[in-house]
Design a protein around this nucleic acid. Sequence first.
DNA 1: ATAACGATTAGCT
DNA 2: GCTAATCGTTATA
Length: 205
Amino acid sequence: MARGRVLSQAFYARDPATVARDLLGRVVEADSPDGLVAVRLVETEAYAGEDDPASHAWRGPTPRSLVMYGPPGRSYVYFSYGMHWALNLVCGERGAAAAVLLRAGEVVAGADVARARRRPGTSDARLASGPANLAASLGLGGTWNDLDVTAARGQLRLRAGSPVGDGDVLVGPRVGISRAVDVPWRFTVSGDSRVSSPRLRRPPA
DNA sequence: ATAACGATTAGCT
DNA sequence: GCTAATCGTTATA
């Protein structure tokens, strides 16, 4: 399967909602000793910087959020609820502290490796459905934070894949947060079984 | 105290 | 198949 070339830094240096929208259909690849896993993205979520009460950058730079203040095109991996890892991509201009959370996707390579990282009996459709499931399938952990995802030979990278047309994109409110819930910054590929909540609509033309 | 969550369970369609 | 409710577990502020 042709997954295309690695996305450049310019791809990420745009506002987070634009990047989140444009990431649908793209492919994230992670290299680990036990194998490569690639996931085609079907659900993403944008986080603005210090203006966004739902962002980890809301109260300014902290040891955890510092990565988001760096250049776009790097990974922001954080640990949540005592057990989960989640993967974001830093975007916007340097210092904007914006990011896109990768929420769900379809495993398109290394399904056996991904399956071995999940609970026995997990269906293929659920392998990378949900931010922590996606991160688990890719084998991510704390050491994957602050990596350059624009490096063709990097451990973690994004490939061009097949961009999704506007007719196949739905937008809706973000989920799993308690503040600024109503901002429509969650993007999904319409009709994809890996997306759960139906509270989505067509983006305004 | 709270959290950008997922697994499980219970109950319904 | 679906939704709602509950809980586990620890970094962060």
